[in-house]
Nucleic acid binder design. Structure first.
Lengths: 147, 147
DNA sequence: TTGCTCCTCACGTCACGTGAGGTGGC
DNA sequence: TTGCTCCTCACGTCACGTGAGGTGGC
């Protein structure tokens, strides 16, 4: 039942759900950003799981919000995959020193991403403030005229 | 004295000051995003004023923070120029109704830009929150191991 | 005069867009 | 079977990067 509900989405639906296009999704597969099922017969339809959708959404979000190149994005996502791998190792590790080391690496990766995001946030907030100031000034002049 | 201090910067310095490259600045001139002095003799050096630098900085900021295409950016900047023109008209207008109309148009333009900026801000803040949550979770596990 | 930056083509690249012609599944 | 979406080339485009070969100003 749960397995049947998987791998049933077609590229057009996926494009719609992720705010992309079929061409973009094929391109991401081409350059290795998306896995691209090995067992697909040449010429046959691609199909996608809900996890695939999540990954594409993640790519789109990082691409648009952080303005990274797809090469940088790939590096970042590989680091993320490495973390997932570490988490699996972590489950198996009994040695508390090993577990600490893994957790500290995770902290590093998260910190890197946070710095990128917070840098952008500061710039955007500055831009917002300037626009709000402008608006306040214009509204002030309007009020002067109205009374 | 003030006129002499103008139009003295070369393209390399301008690129450095605005975080771009000479090629980018020439390209923006080519597609009409930057004015490009008409009276420059073919083959002679371009030179820039402090106002030019401000314009380029504005372009770069909107390009990077809002992710607009240069076509969309041009439209937005033309709207901004139109507002500047309106401000000049505004100075001359004595009719309060005319002044109100001009101010209301200004409000519209500012509102459009604010919506773009605030949309981006919301997305970025959401991303930040997710990262902060992840970090908190990892730090919690670390503390468990340490005591 | 020497060295650096500038100039103008012009081809390359990244991240896709856009048909052209053909096949696949409800 | 019909219609829609899918497939694979392959060329086009946007926003520049990157030399190639030559000129300009301190």
């Amino acid at each position: 039942m749960t397995a049947i509900a998987d791998k049933m989405l077609r590229i057009g639906e996926v494009a719609e759900l992720t705010g992309t296009t079929p061409r973009t999704i094929r391109y991401y597969e081409e350059i290795g950003l998306l896995p691209g099922a090995e067992d697909r017969v040449q010429g046959k339809h691609r199909c996608y799981s809900l996890q695939d959708i999540e990954r594409i959404k993640e790519i789109v979000r990082l691409r648009d919000l952080l303005g990274l190149s797809l090469d940088q994005l790939r590096a970042l996502l590989e680091a993320e995959a490495a973390r997932a791998e570490l988490r699996r190792e972590y489950q198996d590790a009994d040695d508390p020193e090993t577990r600490k080391r893994i957790l500290n690496q995770s902290l590093g990766h998260i910190g890197t991403q946070l710095e990128l995001v917070q840098g952008r946030l500061l710039e955007l907030q500055q831009l917002e403030q300037e626009l709000v100031d402008k608006r306040r000034s214009v509204r002030g002049k309007l009020r002067e005229l109205e009374q």
